[in-house]
């Protein structure tokens, strides 16, 4: 039983059921990784928004603070999406964002850049994160997809044992419950 469950128990009546032993977590490992990536995205986005000048200096690309801030906003939205029920979209937007990051870093990985080593390190890190993003996005998408099975045909499920035409409008004649007491 975790701390939140214990807190929840405090708000209940003495006779209400209380958790004694928790079952296995319902979230799959890929969903939990997606959540961690979502929070990572939000943290990175905040850093890019707040410390864009320091990042630009560290990468040797002064004057590109606006681009870094825009990337920060992108990270924030990807993070929020990755934490939501639509996490597949969030994760794929992270993959697309990774591509943008790699493209930008490759542009900065010039011989005349005095901070070329920092850019190289950043490229390695982003490549690693891209791999995690890609694998997670694939796994989460597969887990939550509707699947390739043909949708079932329920056209034999009318719910009217006596047949549709036999009951059409029947309640107009025999309705006994009050329509409204307002």
């Amino acid at each position: 039983m975790n701390m939140l469950s214990k807190f929840g128990n405090l708000s209940r009546r003495p006779s209400d059921p209380k958790v004694v032993k928790s079952g296995p977590k319902a979230l799959a490992p890929s969903d939990m990784v997606a959540r961690k990536l979502g929070w990572f995205s939000i943290a990175l986005g905040m850093v890019e928004l707040i410390a864009s000048e320091r990042i630009a200096r560290a990468l040797g690309i002064p004057g590109k603070e606006g681009v870094i801030r825009a990337y920060g906003a992108r990270e924030l939205s990807s993070g929020i999406l990755s934490l939501s029920a639509d996490r597949q979209s969030g994760l794929w937007s992270r993959v697309a964002g990774d591509g943008l990051d790699i493209g930008t870093l490759l542009w900065a990985f010039r011989h005349d850049n005095p901070k070329r080593d920092n850019v190289g390190l950043a490229l390695v890190l982003v490549a690693g994160v891209t791999l995690i993003d890609l694998l997670t996005a694939q796994k989460v998408s597969a887990r939550h997809a509707r699947g390739r099975r043909q949708p079932q045909d329920f056209s034999n499920r009318s719910g009217f044992p006596r047949g549709l035409e036999a009951v059409r409008g029947l309640a107009r004649k025999d309705m006994s419950s009050p329509a409204s007491q307002n």
């Binding site: 006779s15 032993k21 979230l27």
Partner: peptide, 22 residues
Amino acid sequence: SMRALVWHGTEDIRCDEVTDPE
């Protein structure tokens, strides 16, 4: 105790052992 489906957080519903209602 009995089994019940218990909410633990977003998309995290578990089959837990809980105390009986009274």
